[in-house]
Structures are given as C-alpha cells and as structure tokens.
Design a protein around this nucleic acid. Sequence first.
DNA 1: CAACACTTGTCGTTTAGTCAACAATTGGTG
DNA 2: CACCAATTGTTGACTAAACGACAAGTGTTG
Lengths: 215, 215
Amino acid sequence: MALPPAISDDSPFPGEPRTATPDAAESQDPRVRRTRQILQQALAELLQSREFDTLSVQEITDAAGVNRATFYAHYPDKFALLECMIAGRFHALLEGRGVAFDGSCNMALLGIVLGVCDFLTQSLRQGAGSKCPKANQLPPHMESAIISVVRGMLLDGIRKHPPEGGYSPELIASAASWAIYGAAREWLQTPDHPPSEEAAPAIQRLVAPIMHLGG
Amino acid sequence: MALPPAISDDSPFPGEPRTATPDAAESQDPRVRRTRQILQQALAELLQSREFDTLSVQEITDAAGVNRATFYAHYPDKFALLECMIAGRFHALLEGRGVAFDGSCNMALLGIVLGVCDFLTQSLRQGAGSKCPKANQLPPHMESAIISVVRGMLLDGIRKHPPEGGYSPELIASAASWAIYGAAREWLQTPDHPPSEEAAPAIQRLVAPIMHLGG
DNA sequence: CAACACTTGTCGTTTAGTCAACAATTGGTG
DNA sequence: CACCAATTGTTGACTAAACGACAAGTGTTG
C-alpha cells in the first residue's frame, strides 16, 4: 500500500477510527481506549524524530508495546491512525480552551479559527527536525484530518442553531471548514505574518458569511 | 482485612508481585506489564494527596482505569501493590545510578546505602502533605519493602562473590539490609544531620564487616 | 534473473481483562 | 441493638489482546 485511502464518509468521533471497527459509538471498554491511546502516543513520539512515510506498522506497534495484529483490529492502516491522532489532539486543544457552541456562535467560530492557526503552527514546529521536501507545509493526511475535525465541530454548531438559507448543514460545514483551513494555511506561509490572535478575527469575519447563510 | 500480610518469602523481582501470580519469572506478556505499571502509577499519584490507609482498592483501580477484579489477579491486596511499587521505584533509582555488583563490592554497597538515604529522604518529602501521626517516619509497609529490595540486591552480590565465613548468604543479606535501613533511618531522624553523601560512607564502613565475614 | 530481507494484511488459538453479581466483613448512625 | 452503606475477595461468562504463522507484495542487491 503506497497511497492513503481517500477520506469520504463522515467522521464519527475525534481520535476514534472511522473504519475497521464496527463500533458505531466510541468504545466503553477500557482495553480499547487504552490500546488506541497507546498507539497514538507512540506515533506522536516517533514523529518527533522520524518521517511518517518511513514508519512501518511494525515499528509503531513495537514502540507502543502492542501486537501488530492488534493494530489492524483498530485501524485499517497507519494513515487512519495518523488521522485519528491528529483529530484527537486538535479536539483536545479546543476542549482545553473551552471552545464549544454553547454561547455565541461567533465566539465559537473565532475559537476554532484560532485553534487551527495555533495547531498548524505547533505541528510545523514539531516536524521541523525532519527534512520536508516542501518546507512550511503539512503532509496531506494531516491536513485532511484537521479539516475533518473542524467540519464535525461546525456541523454540531449548525445543528444546534440551524441557519435558514436552505443549504444543507453538511455543505455549509464543508465549505467553511475548508475555507478556514485554507486561510490559516495561507496566513502561515506568508513571510512576515502577524500573530494568530490578530489573524484569526480577520479569517473569522471572512468565513462568518458562509455560516450565517440566510440567517 | 485490617493488617498487612507478613513479608516472609524471598522477593522474586522488584516491582513484581510475590504472591497471587503463579508466574515464577517476570511476565513477558505486554498486557500484564501494562496493568501492573498502570496500577503502580495510579497508586503513586493518589499517595501525593491521600493517605495510604484511606485508599480503597476500588479507588486505586478507578484511578488506573482497571477493573477491580483485575487488581486481585495481580496483587493479593493493596499492601502488596504498595510493596511492589516501592520496590520497583527503588530498584529504578539504583539502576539509574548504575549501581550493581559488577566491579568493586564496596562501591556497590556504598551506592546502595546512598540510595537508601536518598530514597528515604524523597519519600518523606513526597508524603509531607499528609498529616502523619509520627512525623519523619515512613509507614511500616514501605519500610519492609525497601529492606526487602536491599536484601535481594545484597543477596545477588554475595552469590557473585561469596564470603568464606560459613554464614548463609540469606543471613548475611538480611542482617546487612536491616542494618543499612536502621542506620539510614537514624541518620534521617537526627535533627541536624549531614548530607547523605557524607553519611553514606560512614554507614557503609559500619556495615561492611557484616558483608565480608571471614573473607 | 534469482535470492533476499522486509512489509502488509489476515487468521486461529490461547491468555488477560472486563463486567456484573455474589457472600462476608467492616464502620458508622439513629 | 438493628440498619444502612461501603469495602473486600471471589466467581463465571464474555471480549479484547497476544502470539505465531501464513500468503502476497515490494524493493534491492549480486
């Protein structure tokens, strides 16, 4: 297997596999939680010194102290593990900041945008040791994982406070999440870019019209 | 069960249970390594804010994310867990300092004595938050655990370089380990005691004659 | 080309961990 | 005293993980 599988279906839970596990909801079993967390932790540590593409499933499971067959009981391949790890960590970052669609939608949106900017920054800083072919750029698997999480959170928010423009929540969420990521990426690659606290509100105002379509 | 079970038989491995597990050697299975480490870690964290006697097995397993029945598959009771935790951490301290009976026996003995002094000091510092009935004193379970580890290490050393006094290695190891602990305890309770680097050589010279009996 | 070392998924069997229930014990509290 | 709530070990059924082996694919080295 050389190419990562395409991301198509809706992401069920951050940090939890999409495929390969028939469990619809997140697993209650402590054993399952444990092994998945161990695997994600091991991957994160390996990524500090190694490039993702050079890692084999065997290496990951060895580092995790988990049997290789167990890996395949949770993730279809290493790309799925990477996605779940990214999603889980990004979700944790937002949760740690208390970002949620409880109060103002605009505040939540701003929090998400700021989260994307900061998460992107720290992800690039971490992988600075490896010699990337294209500098200041995340591997595509990571990008799609982040977008997927953002889309899920926006979808939650839209369903709590549905707009009235006739657009499907999925369409709005997809458009907005890709827009947020693209803008954040553009901001980060700009040579002398302002701090995230300054850029995020601008991006938020840029994307807000998509969210409030017809509202 | 109110009183801890007596420590009688020889300790097989530091950080590993003595009883309740039929495994003679340390377990190879990653699962049992994991659970034991998780349980010991959970106990260590709970001890930072709670007194050992007030902890229930349920609380420990809850903190560890391990089922209560699993606890009893590894340890006969919470006292055994405490012993294994202490033994494991003390053993790790010595290993981190490279203390072993490879080269000079006197150097190894000095390292062990120094280890006991420092381990005792840091153990008391950690439990400083809890209101101990007798200040500057470890609960008896911890004391016996430390002595047990020291005895095991001395036994290893004696068997590598057996003295010729006709005494059994077990007797020599027991006498020396209790002497070391007693001396270190006395040193620590002395009001204006010197630093461990100063006290350890003195204790070592005190105990050395026991070790070299007839050699 | 063949030989080689390595990786990828998958499978069946054995073992460890989970979970709910159990009787027995302990420690208050009215 | 009786009552209640919590803790202690233990059991049995179910499930996840470990382990070894397997066929098949991928380089790469001579």
